[in-house]
Nucleic acid binder design. Structure first.
Lengths: 218, 218
DNA sequence: ATCAGAGCGGAGCGATCCGTTCCGCTGCTA
DNA sequence: TAGCAGCGGAACGGATCGCTCCGCTCTGAT
């Protein structure tokens, strides 16, 4: 994300350009934190949190919608990257478990879902979303093939799980992470083939049933 | 909730007073639906949904905050009523399971938690909240005593569970209910003593750790 | 039959909020 | 040293929203 065009003579962290390049990251991180906390937060809140003026924001993004889109797309890409790593795991079950832990920790779900509908998605985002769906499905199948995931689980159950974990939130971020991990462990136990109980209530979530958020709202 | 002072000669559903009494319920139900969907919704949205004018609202509630408080307190009372029924169940585990199902169906958690912080709570609400906590703790203990609930579960885990279920939401309310039930079943399987797995990640949620929402925000 | 007023619809006021623009300053960079 | 990238932040214009208020209707007591 840092600007690679800065092979300047000086050590790479002084001067105006370098500061600006650093601001790129600072602003994105601030925006992440702010909009995760309140998806309707004003732009000024991001600027304050980043410790910069509003101009620094508008120099980088043409509009609030642009920033939101960028944030969301980054989250989506992160998701795809994680799930790609996961399907490469030789152990289908461990691949799924590790994947969920990392995605929950990174709070990717809040980024992609709570922000959805606040901006017009690009075609590229649609492709990435489709790809993420396919890969997640593959991940679920592999975990089932390994015999560790209940057979009556469907891909969309992963969406419900992520939704549930993302809903856990306390003021302290690290504590939030811990509580989510605990919640995730309970869910995984309930989803594992070892986990008792008869059938899960039907009908299971259907394809596309969780996609309504992506329709532009407002 | 219907006005019992209407033992009028006519069948009890005609006349201005009766219409007004019916509006009481209509407005409350509309407010429930609207604020459940968007806690920041404007008052006018409630009036529209109820099919009445704004005056009809302000005749009943002095302010928006008043209405929110009423809604939230109703939810809290509902919770207490349900948990009272549950602790009376001779089967500790079935008491817990049935209770969770009813509370999740009624979407009580969204009412009490997503609205919290948007109004100044009354002392009476504090008492009810305390009582609900005690009763829930008793419920958990009874389920553990029955040997059906894992020993490393704490009361606050119920809070996490409700939080997670409340986060599931699709446009159709009945479908939302079904998906939440499915999610709840997974969680219960993960929480039941039969459910496999070693220890749950520690430390478990602590007392009061989920109460930060009740601090007045904004 | 009469009429005071409960009940209500809805326009509009005043306050607030928010996205975005723009001006002027600073201090790199060429 | 001149020029401009980069930025801070005031302020504008529009939108939103809680709430008030005026006037109408029609009930229900007399």
């Amino acid at each position: 994300m840092t600007n690679s065009a800065d092979a300047a003579p000086t050590p790479p962290l002084a001067g105006r350009r370098a500061q600006a390049a650093r601001n790129d990251a600072v602003i994105l991180e601030a925006a992440r934190a702010v909009f995760l906390d309140d998806p309707k937060a004003p732009i000024a809140a991001v600027a304050d949190r980043a410790g910069v003026g509003i101009s620094a924001l508008y120099r980088r993004y043409a509009s609030k919608e642009d920033l939101l889109r960028r944030l969301c797309h980054d989250g989506l890409r992160r998701y795809v990257a994680e799930v790609e790593v996961a399907v490469a795991d030789p152990d289908g079950w461990q691949g799924l478990v590790g994947f969920l832990g990392r995605v929950v920790d990174a709070d990717v779900h809040s980024l992609t879902v709570h922000l959805a509908g606040t901006f017009a998605p690009t075609p590229e985002m649609g492709q990435d979303a489709a790809r993420s769906g396919e890969l997640t499905a593959a991940l679920v199948e592999r975990a089932q093939a390994a015999g560790r995931l209940r057979a009556d689980v469907v891909v969309q159950d992963v969406g419900l799980l992520l939704e549930g974990c993302a809903a856990i939130r306390v003021p302290d971020p690290e504590r939030t992470r811990q509580l989510r991990r605990r919640h995730l462990a309970v869910l995984l136990a309930g989803l594992s083939a070892a986990g008792g109980g008869p059938e899960r209530p039907r009908p299971p979530p259907a394809a596309g049933e969780l996609d309504w958020r992506w329709k532009q709202r407002k």
